[in-house]
Design a protein around this nucleic acid. Sequence first.
DNA 1: GTCTATACATCGATAGAC
DNA 2: GTCTATCGATGTATAGAC
Lengths: 200, 200
Amino acid sequence: MRARSARGVRRAEPIALRREAKVEAIVAAAWELARAHGIAGISLRDLARAVGIKQPSLYVYFDSKDALYDEMFADGNRQLVARIEALDLPADPRLAVKVFIREWIAFALEDISRYQLLFQRHIPGFTPSPESYALAERALRPLIGLVRDAGAADPGDLDCMIAVVAGLTDAQISNDPTGDRWIRHTDRLIDLLIDHTNQE
Amino acid sequence: MRARSARGVRRAEPIALRREAKVEAIVAAAWELARAHGIAGISLRDLARAVGIKQPSLYVYFDSKDALYDEMFADGNRQLVARIEALDLPADPRLAVKVFIREWIAFALEDISRYQLLFQRHIPGFTPSPESYALAERALRPLIGLVRDAGAADPGDLDCMIAVVAGLTDAQISNDPTGDRWIRHTDRLIDLLIDHTNQE
DNA sequence: GTCTATACATCGATAGAC
DNA sequence: GTCTATCGATGTATAGAC
């Protein structure tokens, strides 16, 4: 009893960490496959091969393929949250909105598969779990206050801001992923939206 | 020789028409399946069953599933072109832009699967053929002149207009297909873009 | 935890008879 | 043109040895 308890206490954490590290390795390999074959083109057999195990062994770490996508969704949003929180936002709220949005767009253009999983509905049947979705909300939450402080206090203003940025980003990714034909208008449109809030 | 030639001349058209009618029936059935199971959820077996033939027989009419998608892409764009060309556009160019865009959005919201095939990259590996793509360009071409006449003559203005409308439409479809939380801002944003052209 | 082996379902696509 | 039969790939999942 005492030995079992001691073992449970002493080894629970390292084991969990080792497992977590393996999950992370699998997710990292999955991102690589996604970049190569598209987010929907991940095959569990390829993924298992990439991490040096056999396909059924993946089920030790994920209950289903959707659970893998959910882990990737959470992972991608954690990356975004880290990027956003590392930003040194200027005091001027209007400029802060622009800096925030620029970082969001840079993140989006960096990895198209990641963008599709996080911000589009590209996987048939996949819906993020509530826990993962909470991460997605956390990434965007700072923008709410910034937009309001910049003078666009109507909820519709935030809707427009996000939709406009998504529209520019989507056109950029779809038609010219390495150029700036669409996103070069971002700052100007942000100014327009702030200067002409929906409330007036 | 003469009989063969006569048969070729006399029957070539009816045969082609019968075949064309069958292709149209298959495409129509495919749209119905897409509405029920999503654009990527069309199975060739279900599609064959819907038109009363067996799955391999579809290959008499389409070389591949992508060829079916291409036919659907062309068909959807022909529907859009017809809708656009049937519009009675007002003389005032700014109002004409709004009427055009309203029709485009109504068309988009009418059938989400059609929207995804025509305006998003939702089918892995599918790229429209040049002929089909020409139809897509034809649907949007009238907007070029309207936007210019309305006072937004810079090419970037048209890019912005399309991207903004797509952003609003996409948010609407993704989050609330039957509501108007995003698209209710359309006219206001069109005015904004026209009043503050990129050239000034 | 990991493996082999296997089952069962789906799918797009092809060969060849009629 | 249409069919039957089949191929090879996929994803999902399980049983049972080690």
